[in-house]
C-alpha cells in the first residue's frame, strides 16, 4: 500500500531528528583526538579508493569492521545497517556489470572481468562508507568542526557549517509542526495535485521563515560583536596515545597504498 506523502515526509523529518542524537559510541576511537581521527580516516578512505587489488581493499574493510566492533554496540548496529543499505544499493548498481563487462565468459553469461569489477566496486564502496561513518559515529559534531580549523579551513566557513547544522534542527522542527498541523486538518487520501501544492507551499513557507530567521540571527550576532570575521577558540591537546594512533594510521595507509596501488 502506498503511504501518504505527509506520513513519509514526517517520518523522514523525525528520523533526521533522531539520527542527530546517535553519536553514542565508546571505545578507543571515541577518545581519540578529532584531528588525528579526521586525518587518519581520510587517509584510509583515500587508500581504499586508490586500491587496485581486491585483497587489499578487503583488508581495509576488515580494519573498518574491527574498529566498528570495538566502538560500542550503538556504533556497531549503525555500521551493520550501513552495510545492508550500501550493499543493496551498490549491489543493484553493480549487478548488470556482471553480464555487460566484456571479458572471458564464466557460467550464466557472467564474465570474469564483470565479476571482478562488480566485487571491486562493492567492497570498495562498503569500505569507504564504513570509514566515513566511523568518523561521524565516534566524534561529536562540534569537535569535528574545531578539528577542521586545524586543517586551515577558514574560520568563517567553520562558523557557517556550525550555524547550518544548528538551523537544520530549528527548520526541521518548524517543518514538522507545519506538516503535522496539515495532517490534522486532512483525513483520507488527497488528490495528487493538492498534495503537490501542499508540499510546495510547505517548502515556500519554510523558505520565508528561513530568510526571516537569518535576519534575526544576523541581529543577534551583531549585537554580540560579530563584524563578518569569525573568531573561534581552539583547544586540543594531543596525548601520547593520540600520537601513537596517528603513527598507526599513517603506517596502515602507507601499507595499503604500497600494496594496493603503487606496487
Amino acid at each position: 500500500m502506498r503511504r501518504d506523502f505527509l506520513e513519509k515526509t514526517l517520518r523522514n523529518l523525525g528520523d533526521a531528528l533522531d539520527e542527530a542524537g546517535r553519536a553514542e559510541s565508546s571505545g578507543p576511537l571515541r577518545r581519540l583526538d578529532p584531528r588525528v581521527k579526521l586525518a587518519g580516516f581520510f587517509g584510509l578512505i583515500l587508500a581504499a579508493a586508490s586500491s587496485r587489488h581486491l585483497p587489499v581493499t578487503l583488508g581495509l574493510w576488515g580494519l573498518g569492521a574491527t574498529l566498528a566492533a570495538v566502538s560500542g554496540p550503538g556504533a556497531w548496529r549503525a555500521i551493520l545497517r550501513l552495510w545492508a543499505g550500501v550493499g543493496l544499493l551498490t549491489g543493484a548498481v553493480a549487478l548488470p556489470a556482471l553480464f555487460l563487462t566484456p571479458g572471458p565468459a564464466l557460467d550464466w553469461g557472467v564474465t570474469q572481468t564483470g565479476l571482478q569489477s562488480a566485487l571491486t566496486l562493492l567492497v570498495r564502496v562498503e569500505t569507504t562508507a564504513t570509514f566515513a561513518s566511523l568518523i561521524a559515529l565516534t566524534t561529536p559534531w562540534p569537535a569535528l568542526l574545531k578539528a577542521l580549523r586545524h586543517f586551515h579551513v577558514p574560520a568563517l566557513a567553520v562558523v557557517i557549517f556550525a550555524m547550518a547544522t544548528r538551523f537544520i534542527f530549528v527548520l526541521l522542527g518548524i517543518a514538522r509542526d507545519a506538516f503535522e498541523a496539515r495532517r490534522a486538518r486532512h483525513v483520507g487520501h488527497l488528490p495528487g495535485k493538492l498534495r503537490r501544492q501542499m508540499a510546495a507551499s510547505g517548502a515556500a513557507m519554510l523558505l520565508g521563515k528561513s530568510i526571516q530567521l537569518s535576519g534575526e540571527v544576523y541581529d543577534a550576532m551583531r549585537a554580540r560583536g560579530f563584524r563578518g570575521e569569525a573568531v573561534t577558540l581552539d583547544e586540543f591537546r594531543c596525548s601520547r596515545a593520540d600520537w601513537a594512533a596517528a603513527g598507526l594510521f599513517l603506517a596502515l595507509t602507507g601499507a595499503a597504498l604500497e600494496w594496493g596501488c603503487w606496487r
Binding site: 544548528r166 534575526e216 540571527v217 543577534a220 549585537a223
Partner: peptide, 13 residues
C-alpha cells in the same frame, strides 16, 4: 541584547 526568539539568539553548536 537578549532577543525574543531563542532559536535566533542561540546560533552556536
Amino acid at each position: 541584547v537578549v532577543f525574543q526568539n531563542p532559536d535566533a539568539q542561540l546560533f552556536n553548536a
